[in-house]
Design a protein around this nucleic acid. Sequence first.
DNA 1: GAGTGGTCTAGACCACCCC
DNA 2: GGGTGGTCTAGACCACTCC
Lengths: 237, 237
Amino acid sequence: MSTKYREIYNIFKEEIENGTLKPNQKISDELTLCKKFNCSRMTIKKALDILVQEGLLFRKRGIGSFVMNSTNTHQRITLSERELTGLTKSAKNSVTSKILDFKLIFANETIANFLNMKPNEPLYSIYRLRYINNDPCVLEQTYMNPALIPGINEDILHSSIYNYIEKDLKLRIGSAKKITRACISNETDHKYLLLEKEEPVLEIEQIAYLDNGIPFEYSFSRHRYDKFEFTTYSLRI
Amino acid sequence: MSTKYREIYNIFKEEIENGTLKPNQKISDELTLCKKFNCSRMTIKKALDILVQEGLLFRKRGIGSFVMNSTNTHQRITLSERELTGLTKSAKNSVTSKILDFKLIFANETIANFLNMKPNEPLYSIYRLRYINNDPCVLEQTYMNPALIPGINEDILHSSIYNYIEKDLKLRIGSAKKITRACISNETDHKYLLLEKEEPVLEIEQIAYLDNGIPFEYSFSRHRYDKFEFTTYSLRI
DNA sequence: GAGTGGTCTAGACCACCCC
DNA sequence: GGGTGGTCTAGACCACTCC
């Protein structure tokens, strides 16, 4: 599973994040890194390219490669575009869940379409209120295909579905499409997220795929507007 | 400027977007594509890898590469994570701008830090209301470094700053960090975006970089909540 | 076993930057 | 001219899927 370029990537990522490599610092040139890691230049480039895409490194032709300025100084919890494994990992603090509703339903046309299912096939419908450090923060409506993700129960829903999928079912989550929008809060939001009428929610609609490209989850997460923000870094090809 | 892998990427991107290649359709295998485009396998892989990152293609080892399902059926305007060239390109309709304020100020500590400038250096401050099909949609506060982007005037602000930077100044925009959040609308939003008190805004904070890694712009765009959403696709490495 | 994509190599030539 | 990253080649071996 591990590859040479992932190992090199992880080493640099760790060194940038723990401050061994400082912002704007020049790293070794590629030929030197080839010798250091005993590999070809393409392998070094592949590792560094990922760091460039993630906004951790910057490269200048003819000059060298440099650590990017991070400039992360906000009060809200950062939901990273690159984080696929749900709230449990994004929040550095304790995440707990209250199950508001958990049932099997018949898939409607829309959801069946998103999840590559046929209408009226069975579908999990999961509605959870999620707490961070005991504060209610996210209302999450999740639909999952029980043919792909069997055996979900309340124990799993109280902790992390994603851990269950990867550790117990031995499936690998591969990618996700996310749509972020601002919404007027409704009465349910007021009740569970303790919001006032004029306070909005940050809604994230998501289709998540396994690493074999099959969609397994369709969800809507409504976040307290004052506790979350969504960060992306984009690069021109 | 153009490279072989970009040309191949563009051909596939065009064929996926115009429907020549249909969702779930299998494309030719890599060796066949090598012959067709008269190039090595690594070049084909590089082109297809970008399409995979963008969520347009999916690949299965041992089987082949397939066009992804798009499933894009929303009413709001899609702000793509990958779009660096501003509103003028994202909206397919006519974009016009009203300049609410345009002046030179002294950079404060925070902005100077984001833009790699020294405090009290001169800084453009631009405040625009942007219309799509004559409807007011976005309130945009932009700060730019006049040492990097000289010669901005009202004519440019009425159309597209990004066009000016790329076509007239011959600079190339390279990357951007974006932070998306939901905010309670304030009186200025109510006045210019014609929002009611309980209607929120979708705010995008952005630092944009030239392709030499130098930050040139720091901005806050406040979008009407009912007309915009922000889409990303993320892939596990 | 045949076909497919994933990784990796050892080199090549080029564009760009600085001296 | 010497150093750097960007692109590209022509192969190699491997892991996975299907027959």
